[in-house]
Every structure is written in C-alpha cells, then in structure tokens.
C-alpha cells in the first residue's frame, strides 16, 4: 500500500503539466488552438520515442548517455539505404527502415555488452560509445549533411491523417509497444526488479546480465525509431542529427517522475514528462522567449524533479 504522501508525489508531474497549460493559455489563448495542439503533438513525437527508450534504462537504475550517438548512427545507416542527395549507397526504399532499426538495436546491444562484460559503469560505456556512434556516422556520411530524397520515408513527417503527421501515430504505436513490454512481458518485470534492488533480483534467480543486455538493445531500437522520425522531418541525415536530444530525453524521463535510482516510474510517467518538456518549449516560443532559455529551464527542472523523487535514500552514498 502506497503512503498518501508518495501517491501525491507521483501525481505532481500531471499537476505541473496542467498548471503549465493553464498558465500559458491564460497568457496567450492561441496556445489552445487546434493548430497549436497539432504542432505540440508533432513536436513531441520523436522526443517521446527517445524518452521511452531511455525510460527502460533508467528504470533499471542505469543511465544511457548514448542517445545522440545512437541516433547519428541509425540516421547514417538509413541515409545509406535510401535514395539520397549524395547519389551513393543502396536505394532499397522503405526496407531501409528495418535495417536502420536493426543497426540501432545492435548498437544498443553493443553498449550493453561493454557495460556488462567489461564492467564499465553504464554512464561511461554509453558516453564513450555515444561518441563512437557520432564518429561512425561522420565517416559513413563523409562529414556531410546528406539529403534524404525517398518520398516514402519523408511521408512519415509530411503525410497527414486527421490533421496529424504519421510520425505522431508511429510514436503512439511505440508507446503501446513500450507499455506492453513494461507491463506484460517477463523482461519488463525483470527490468523493474533490477531497479528495485539488483542483489535481490539476482538472488531470486533473474539472469541480471541478460536483462541488462536486452534492456540496452530495446533502448537502442527506440533510439533508432527516433532517428528515423527525425531524419524524415528534417529531410536529411547528419552526424549531428540527435543534437540536443539527450538533454531533452533524460529531462523528460526524470521530470515525468521516474527515479534515477531505478524501480520507480514507467513509460506512462515518461509521456507526461515529454509533454511537460514540449509544452514548456512551445509556450516559450509563443511568449517570445529565445529558444536557448529552454536548456537552462530544463536543467533546473531536472534538479527539482530528482529532488522530489529522492525521498528515502538520504543515507545512501551518492557519487
């Protein structure tokens, strides 16, 4: 049975989101126009998928700083297999997307292997490998920004159904997948168990290494989907495809209420977190604030959110 206090604490992100929406709507009613809500949904699609991937890792009590590198790598692979502006590579149309996702999953799996078998802490393994991903993407793309000409891929961002681009539906589908993995599969429950206490999880017979490997692979796949959506929107791929997305993804997960210590939170919390981040950004644009203020605001939001989520570990050593 949850205590009253912790139940209130887990509802805080929702109240923050509602409060933000009300405050911005009062300052400028345009915020609630259908056009703007559609813009928010479209802007939230790629960040949501990325944050969902990061959620699994953070639920485990680890961290993944490779978001930008994984995106760059997946984006470069995508560009290599569709019709692109450089005129090189293999043009296999939509079949490029599963290949890009596979590459991203393999990239995540590799980070997991470095983390598990070489016993490198996850933040360091993912930081180092993230830079490797950006480097590989640079080599694959020849250091250029390569335009993606394939209209079927670009349709993800350009074709609209019921007023919303396809990418919104893709991200909702990925949300359903993430929710299913978390709540209805063994690996999802094991990830939660690891976050709650790794010693205990291992003692009760969970193969900790396998769970960690799988979690990083799943996260990599989600980053791949995020990369495909982003390059469809930009109509191009480059090594800097994921620039700034790490900060957005991590802050969305944390602001949503998933604890960095693991075992607490989940994909639905992440949806709230992503909406908070995107609404905040949208509101700042509507109110005419320069976009670079966002990073500072998000930085403060991260600190606040971690603080709110950190009750009960005051005696632990924090490194």
């Amino acid at each position: 049975m949850k205590s009253m206090k912790s139940r209130w604490a887990s509802a805080i992100p929702l109240f923050v989101l509602i409060g933000l929406c009300v405050a911005i709507a009062v300052l400028d009613p345009k915020f609630l126009s259908l056009g703007n809500i559609g813009r928010i949904a479209a802007a939230a699609s790629a960040p949501l998928v990325l944050a969902l991937g990061a959620t699994f890792i953070i639920l485990m009590g680890s961290i993944d700083l490779s978001v930008e590198g994984a995106m760059a790598f997946a984006g470069a692979v995508l560009a290599a297999f569709v019709a692109n502006a450089s005129g090189t590579g293999f043009d296999i149309g939509l079949a490029a997307i599963p290949i890009a996702l596979l590459a991203a999953a393999a990239f995540g799996c590799f980070i997991g292997m470095v983390h598990v078998y070489l016993k490198v802490p996850s933040f360091m393994a993912s930081l180092g490998m993230g830079f490797v991903g950006i480097g590989i993407a640079t080599v694959l793309l020849g250091g250029e920004r390569v335009g993606i000409l394939d209209q079927n891929v670009r349709a993800l961002a350009l074709t609209r159904v019921l007023g919303l681009p396809l990418s919104v539906y893709v991200s909702l589908f990925m949300l359903a997948v993430a929710w299913f993995i978390q709540d209805h599969t063994r690996i999802g429950r094991h990830i939660m168990a690891l976050g709650g206490g790794e010693d205990l999880a291992a003692a009760s017979g969970i193969n900790v290494r396998r769970v960690r490997l799988l979690a990083f692979t799943i996260a990599g796949m989600f980053f791949g989907v995020g990369a495909v959506l982003t390059s469809a929107r930009l109509g191009a791929s480059s090594a800097l495809l994921g620039s700034g997305q790490l900060f957005t993804a991590i802050s969305a997960v944390v602001v949503g209420g998933t604890a960095l210590t693991g075992g607490k939170g989940g994909v639905l919390q992440t949806v709230i977190g992503v909406l908070i981040v995107i609404v905040l950004n949208n509101g700042m644009i509507i109110l005419g604030l320069p976009s670079f203020v966002q990073q500072g605001v998000l930085g403060l939001a991260i600190i606040l959110a971690v603080l709110l989520n950190s009750s009960g570990r005051s005696l632990a050593i924090v490194k």
Partner: peptide, 13 residues
C-alpha cells in the same frame, strides 16, 4: 544529493 553526472548535466544546461 543528486548523482554528480546528473547534477553536472543539469548545471551544464
């Protein structure tokens, strides 16, 4: 008492 990597990531922002 935030872990240093997240504290410095946030302050970096």
């Amino acid at each position: 008492r935030l872990p240093s990597f997240i504290a410095t990531l946030a302050v970096g922002g």
